[in-house]
Structure formats: C-alpha cells, structure tokens
C-alpha cells in the first residue's frame, strides 16, 4: 500500500537548513495498523505529511497504492488526497461554521457526490462513530472526543485507502483517548490501512506495529501484540 525508499527532507529557514528526514525506508501493506513513535522533533509529523501528500520530500521515492507520488501539481495532489487518504489531526481541523454532518459530507462534495447522497453517506458515518444525534451541532458545541470522532467520520467518508492520524489523542484525556482508539481499531478490523503518529506508549501498543524514529532515521520497526482499547482499564 505504502512504499517509501531513501526519503530525505530538509527545512530551510534563511541560511540555516535543518535535515529532518535522513533516508527513511519503510513500507506498509494493506490492512496494517502502524504507529510512528519518537521524541519531539524527530520528524514524525514531517513523515506523515509527506505520506499524506500535504508536503513533498526532497529526495527518495514514495509509492501509494501503486502510484508514484512525485512532482504533483496542487490539482492532482488534491485529487489523490481525496481519493486515497483520510486525515485525522490532533487539533481536529473541523470547519467551525459547518455542522458535524456538513463537515463529514465535505470530502464527498469534492468528489462531486450529489447533495442528498452526500447527506445520507455522511449520516451513515456519523452513526458509525456514534454521533448520529449530534449531526446538526456545530464543532463548538461538541467535546474534544466528539470532535475527533466527527473528524474520523469525515476521514472515512471518502472511503480512502489509508487513514493518517497525527496524534489523534493528543488533545484528549485518557478515557476519551481509549474510546477514540477503540473506534480506530474497529475501522482497522474492517480492513482499512491506518498510520498513527503518537508519543504515548499505551496508544502505540494499541496498534499492530510500532516504528520508532530518532533523528530522522528509523531505529526500530517491530510487530507488537495489539492491546484492545475496549479492554483497557483507564486510570
């Protein structure tokens, strides 16, 4: 599903440049649930943004579902994002003047889906994340966990190949985090490929594989025994 080879990325700020990714080789097959760990500043988000075609690598190759992602213009990049990827952000990134339902329906709008079908599908995904009753609420009327679930429903709405989540539980308390992880595990159970950036050990162990980044390189990549969030007792 995802295949990256020798990926490099530097940030340039004036005269200084910061080499963040220093040759990442890594692949993810369909149906996997992978967490990316590492200390702050190790380049986790940078990697995920490149995987999400929100940013571009300086060097190396990236193949997504058999398509080489290279030198795309914004138009094609947008189309690929819409077709292949679903995003879940730490800060939710919902459109604040749109209701939960409208937020979830957004990716479908850009797929050119008709309004009534859009609403129907969006409602389906809202039900899936357990927020059918909150469909008409604005993000400002929802709790953090609810917002993140709306964001998950939105990420699912376009039926993407891969779900990318950058610290999806970063802004949530433990209880809510586990609820959200339970939801994400359920989605993975249905076969969706999921990548999660986190720096929380317990969250990482709820995935099936942990990739450890340090100073722009993968220092460890191992399969783990998945801990089911549902069974976890929260403190």
């Amino acid at each position: 599903m995802i295949e990256i080879k020798n990926l490099h990325k530097s940030y340039h700020m004036g005269k200084n440049s910061l080499h963040v990714l220093k040759g990442i080789n890594f692949s993810v097959s369909e149906g996997e649930m992978v967490s990316i760990m590492g200390s702050s500043g190790s380049g986790k988000s940078t990697l995920l943004n490149i995987l999400g075609i929100l940013d571009e690598a300086d060097e190396g190759t990236y193949t997504l579902d058999g398509t080489l992602i290279k030198n795309l213009n914004e138009k094609v990049a947008a189309r690929y994002r819409n077709k292949f990827l679903g995003f879940i952000f730490q800060s939710f990134n919902l459109i604040n003047y749109k209701s939960a339902l409208e937020n979830v329906a957004m990716p479908l709008y850009y797929q050119g889906v008709k309004r009534n079908i859009r609403t129907e599908k969006a409602m389906h995904y809202l039900e899936k994340v357990g927020l059918a009753d909150w469909a008409s609420h604005l993000p400002s009327e929802l709790s953090g966990g609810q917002k993140q679930r709306v964001a998950i429903a939105r990420a699912l709405a376009s039926d993407p190949k891969v779900l990318l989540a950058d610290e999806p539980t970063g802004a949530l308390d433990t209880k809510t985090s586990y609820e959200v992880m339970d939801l994400i595990q359920g989605i993975n159970d249905e076969g969706k490929t999921i990548l999660i950036v986190t720096h929380e050990e317990d969250i990482a162990h709820m995935t099936k594989r942990i990739v450890n980044l340090k100073d722009g390189l993968i220092i460890d990549d191992s399969v783990v025994n998945q801990v089911r969030a549902k069974n976890e007792a929260y403190v």
Partner: peptide, 16 residues
C-alpha cells in the same frame, strides 16, 4: 486560510 487548508487536505483543488 485555515478553512482553505482543511478543504485542500480533504481534496479541494485550487481552482475550486
């Protein structure tokens, strides 16, 4: 700007 970022992340093309 942020809304535009969100829209683009979920698949809006620049011209749209």
């Amino acid at each position: 700007t942020k809304e535009i970022g969100i829209r683009k992340a979920i698949g809006a093309e620049p011209w749209s």
